[in-house]
Design a protein around this nucleic acid. Structure first.
Lengths: 245, 245, 245, 245
DNA sequence: TATGAATGAGTCTTCATTCAT
DNA sequence: CATGAATGAAGACTCATTCAT
């Protein structure tokens, strides 16, 4: 899709969005757009919460980025904290599910399934603005334990289950060998989480220092992982599963 | 590298700052002194910043956890932000370096080096309180771009270089085959970052839902990665392309 | 009297104010119209102002109770403060006057007149929703000195005058003996004010703790007062001085 | 004590108290007076709450009148509402009790006791700044039902009990005749409540229109009441207690 | 040095008032 | 006329920072 992180965050510069792009046709001020407001506010809030964290984001800033006044924000969300919860809810239930359901019918090698899964995740989740929610949750989990629990139930758990189903498919079909299934699934998870962190954190700060091409990253990590999982002719001497100490 | 460091350090040496740095007879004296009381403050601050983020952590809370009064905190650190910078500095320059230098003299298979590296990283960095600094930096990077840059120069860059050296060692010795070296290094980085995130974020919220045994995790990810890297007799083409059905 | 009234009224005639008062053909027309929708607003406002006070009553709440929207309120009253003034005006000029004029033609003993007066006051004023205006004025007098002055001129003064006329009638007819006429009139006023306070304040909070039967209260206080006023055969010296032991 | 209400409220003019009178000896700003602050704040708050009501009183105004900054107020009281509760608590438990206990040992005629009671009430309660608490409670009762209940339990109930004991003493000693004891006690209460209302409400607005001398008022009402209660030789024909309708 | 009372700029939140529909 | 979405000034409350002790 794009070759560097710079492109991924293109258009998110505050100044560029401060007075909106598409939804301000005319009439200047005092537009009445009851239906559209919550969505615009949630988008603005997502961006800012991801960028600065909950505490460092001012409510007025969210409102300004959504193109409304301070008071309007509180017309739709009773408090900053409720706005935060709505942001999380909105960006979880949305894209994750559809992505999640896409792999049951997959035919083809499990190696290809793994590649397809990661690639699709990037297109449907990672590359979208919603991906920041992961960074947000990780940053704020200790301040909002109930949200963390919610995220665990709605995303982490189903995500882990999906990873396990995929790996198990490979094992069942004699394609993969998995020594420690409970932990192997993180071989899929970790690269995706890492990519998100780069995208929304360090990669967003100094894009020059992180010329990370997401698609190439995804491809290389998928290959590495698949290689590590594939059943092979030569005896895999060293990998005997979990050795304590 | 060191110029960024200098910039961040400038004005942050607690004791020196307060007295204008002019009427001290020797430089060694103040260097020794600054660790006395500030040390406890830095530890408390690290814990709280990691847990709650910069903005949500109150200065008084830091002072209280360090067992001193609010005023004392500002006696050693001119501002909350300087405290933050000091926390980052303190926890980077410390353990990372010594860990970094440990692998040049390693003898044995590169697979073992990888295992040793990750295991040692866990013992020296991951398992310590200082590991939270990574979560902290990732959470706050966009609020403190200069700190992010500093962290990049001091940790990420050297870390990546180390990873590359290790993988290159494997390639040079005919043990590993690496298709895309620039991105393969993240195969080492991602699992470690992921573990830290779990430890300090979601894993700290609901330990029951994340019964993640770090050593087992490290071992399994290392094996998976090594497996993926090892030169093998069968099918040396890692990427089989997308064969449908 | 009427000059203060005029001042308060100025600009408060709801319908007139909005259109600059210039393009209305007849004055009678607007006089009739202003009671139509505003009436419900005034009733709602009276209830809420009495219950919660001026500052704690929200304009929207008044509108909602009157069954109209927030905007409509400001269609009839240019501001919350003008609404307040209108409420006071409305509930003073109304019932008090008619009650006030009822006693000139009274025949019978002055004791009965006192009883009749208090009883009638209860029926015409005290028992009505409008009685709350007294509590309201007392609560808000210092915030609205001009309204307090208006109330003084329109209610307190005429009320005191009435009390005085009644007592004087008793004295003139040889029924009552009054030592200090200027202050004796409060013997009539105080019980009525007290009853209103109970009704709209503490009595409205915990009706169980104040099972105050207004009619019985009125009757008992009237009797007590009349007893205190009646000329008697024995000891006509009311004040026996302070005899210790 | 003083001849008019004007004198009673002398010295309460905001401008006069804004920077305190007695407790600012020197040193200009940033005085450290931890012990004295709460009291000063409570006094300022009492005055303002009585004058303007809870909602219309700004926290900063209270602080300013107490001679401190906004923040200092919240150093001693966690919220405006807690300040309010503290004001009520402070001014109830204080003077009322000592006054309440003063009459058990009284020797002399019950008529004198009544006079003594009312006069003492004025000196100990009515004439003090604390008397405003009654006006405050009555104004705010519906907004703070729990405070109203508290006031009822702490003041109204004991007050009524005291009134009853006094009247009963008169009856027992053959001095008074009371037709309806339950309601007769308000013959004592009502004048005092009325006086407070005048003092803090209308009387404070337009002192010229209310040249009410409290002591003369107290004396006249006491005489009137006592007269109404005294057993007399001539048949008290009309006062047969409570006649409904 | 160390303390913690005091400060006041900065935020969240409310609500009277406006105005496009 | 009526509506209710939008506004923004105002007020409660927080907390980094100062400073008298």
């Amino acid at each position: 899709m794009s070759s560097t992180f710079t492109k991924l965050i293109r258009g998110s510069t505050p100044a560029a969005e401060l007075h909106g792009g598409a939804h301000h046709d005319a009439t200047g001020k005092r537009e009445r757009r009851k239906e559209a407001r919550p969505g615009e506010l949630l988008e603005a809030a997502l961006d800012l919460f991801v960028e600065k964290g909950f505490a460092a984001t001012r409510a007025e800033e969210v409102a300004a980025r959504a193109g409304v006044s301070k008071g309007t924000l509180f017309l739709y969300f009773p408090s900053k904290e409720e706005l935060f919860k709505a942001v999380v809810r909105e960006n979880i239930s949305g894209r994750f599910r559809e992505w999640n359901d896409e792999f049951t019918a997959f035919e083809g090698s499990t190696a290809d399934l793994v590649r397809f899964c990661m690639k699709t995740w990037w297109d449907r989740v990672g590359a979208t603005r919603a991906s920041g929610i992961t960074k947000l949750i990780i940053s704020e989990a200790r301040n909002f334990p109930d949200i963390a629990a919610f995220y665990h139930d709605e995303v982490i758990k189903p995500g882990n289950d999906l990873m396990r189903r995929i790996l198990q498919r490979g094992v069942d079909r004699g394609e993969f060998q998995v020594a420690d299934m409970d932990y192997a699934i993180f071989g899929l998870t970790a690269p995706m989480v890492f990519l998100i962190m780069m995208k929304h954190s360090l990669g967003a700060c100094a894009p020059k220092d992180f010329p990370l091409d997401p698609e190439r990253y995804i491809a290389s990590q998928a290959d590495l992982l698949i290689n590590g999982l594939l059943v092979r002719a030569d005896t895999p001497k060293k990998s005997t599963g979990s050795r304590k100490s």
